[in-house]
C-alpha cells in the first residue's frame, strides 16, 4: 500500500509543472500566439526561483520562515517568466515574427544563459544550484508528529507549497478563461482576431496578456519541475516544456482535460524515473539499461495520443498567424 501512496504522491508532484505549463500554453494559444518558448521560460523561472531560495538558505531567513521564503521564490519565478515571455510577445506581436523560430531562439538562449549565470555566481564548474531541504511541507509544519502511514505518505512525503498553489491557479485559470469577459475576449482573438477587432477589442493587448499569463504560469512551472525532480537545478528542465505542449494538445486546449492528461503523463514520467523500484512493472531480465526503455515511454505515448487526437483537434483557428490590422 505504501508503494501505491508513493506512486500517487509522486504522480501529483510531477503533474504540477505539466499542469501549470500546459495551462500557460493554453492561454497563449487561445490568444493566438504559439508559445514554443515554454521550455525556455521554465528554465528562466527555475533559475531565478532557485537563486532566491539559495540566498534565503544562506542568510538564515529560509530556515526561520520556510513557507514565506517559498512563496517569495514562486513569485520571483513567475515574475521572471513574465519578463522573459515579453521577448516572445514583442517579436510575435509587434514585429510579426515567425513564432516558431522566435520560440526556438528563446529555448536556446535560456539554458545557455542559466549556465553562464550559474557559473558566474557559484564559481566555475559549479553548474548545479542545490535546493534547500527546508522548503518541504511535513506534518511538523502544522505542529504534528511525523508518521509514515498510508495517508501520511500520500499527503506529506512529497509535499511542497507548489502543489496547493497549482490547485488554486488551476481554479483561477479556469474561471478567468470561461467565466469572465476577459476570457471570452482572449479566446475571440485566437479564433478570429479581425472580428474581435471590429467590436473594439484591442487584439495586440489581448495577445500580450495571453503570452504574459503563459510566462507567469510557466515560470512557476519551472520551479515546480526542479522541486519535483529533487536533485537541484542544472540549467535544464528536461524537455518538460515540450511535454507540456503535448499535454495541452492532448487536453484539447481545455483546462479540465489538460488536468487529466497532465496526470496521465506524470504517471508515465514517474514510471520512467522510478521503474526499478516499482515492484509490479516488468523488469525485462537479460536486457541491459532497461531504464532507457521506460524513459522513451512518455514520448512514445505522446506520439500515439497525438495521432489519434490531432484530426479532431480544436486548436484556436488563428494561432501562429501574426495579426495585421491592415489586412482586415
Amino acid at each position: 500500500m505504501t508503494v501505491l501512496a508513493n506512486i500517487i504522491s509522486l504522480t501529483v508532484i510531477f503533474a504540477v509543472p505539466l499542469l501549470l505549463v500546459a495551462l500557460g500554453g493554453m492561454y497563449s494559444e487561445h490568444s493566438g500566439v504559439i508559445n514554443l518558448a515554454l521550455e525556455g521560460i521554465m528554465v528562466i523561472g527555475a533559475l531565478c526561483g532557485c537563486f532566491l531560495l539559495r540566498a534565503f538558505d544562506q542568510n538564515g531567513f529560509g530556515k526561520a520562515h520556510p513557507q514565506v521564503a517559498m512563496l517569495l521564490a514562486i513569485l520571483i519565478a513567475a515574475a521572471a517568466g513574465v519578463a522573459f515571455s515579453l521577448l516572445l510577445a514583442f517579436a510575435a506581436i509587434n514585429l510579426k515574427a515567425d513564432q516558431t523560430i522566435g520560440g526556438t531562439a528563446l529555448n536556446i538562449f535560456a539554458p545557455a544563459f542559466a549556465v553562464v549565470v550559474t557559473w558566474a555566481i557559484q564559481g566555475q564548474g559549479q553548474t548545479t544550484i542545490q535546493i534547500p531541504t527546508w522548503i518541504k511541507i511535513t506534518q511538523e509544519t502544522f505542529g504534528f508528529e511525523r508518521t509514515d502511514g498510508f495517508f501520511a505518505t500520500l499527503f506529506f512525503k512529497y509535499q511542497y507549497l507548489t502543489t496547493p498553489v497549482a490547485i488554486i491557479l488551476f481554479i483561477v485559470a479556469w474561471l478567468l478563461m470561461y467565466k469572465t469577459k476577459f476570457g471570452l475576449r482572449l479566446r475571440a482573438c485566437g479564433e478570429h482576431p479581425q472580428a474581435a477587432d471590429s467590436v473594439g477589442i484591442n487584439v495586440y493587448r489581448m495577445r500580450y496578456a495571453g503570452v504574459m499569463i503563459s510566462g507567469f504560469l510557466a515560470g512557476i512551472g519551472g520551479l515546480a519541475y526542479v522541486i519535483a525532480v529533487g536533485s537541484g537545478f542544472s540549467s535544464s528542465v528536461g524537455g518538460y516544456g515540450f511535454l507540456a505542449l503535448a499535454v495541452m494538445i492532448f487536453g484539447n486546449w481545455k483546462p479540465f482535460t489538460i488536468l487529466g492528461s497532465a496526470l496521465i503523463f506524470a504517471l508515465f514520467k514517474v514510471i520512467a524515473a522510478y521503474n526499478s523500484s516499482i515492484p509490479f512493472l516488468p523488469k525485462f531480465e537479460g536486457l541491459k539499461d532497461q531504464s532507457s526503455l521506460y524513459q522513451m515511454l512518455p514520448y512514445i505515448v505522446t506520439m500515439v495520443v497525438l495521432v489519434f487526437t490531432s484530426k479532431k483537434s480544436k486548436a484556436p483557428k488563428a494561432e501562429g498567424i501574426p495579426y495585421d490590422k491592415g489586412s482586415r
Binding site: 517579436a91 523560430i101 536556446i108 538562449f109 539554458p111 545557455a112 544563459f113
Partner: peptide, 13 residues
C-alpha cells in the same frame, strides 16, 4: 549559445 540564440531571434523577424 547565447550569441547563437540572439542571431536566431533576429532571424525570426
Amino acid at each position: 549559445n547565447i550569441i547563437i540564440a540572439v542571431i536566431i531571434y533576429l532571424a525570426a523577424f
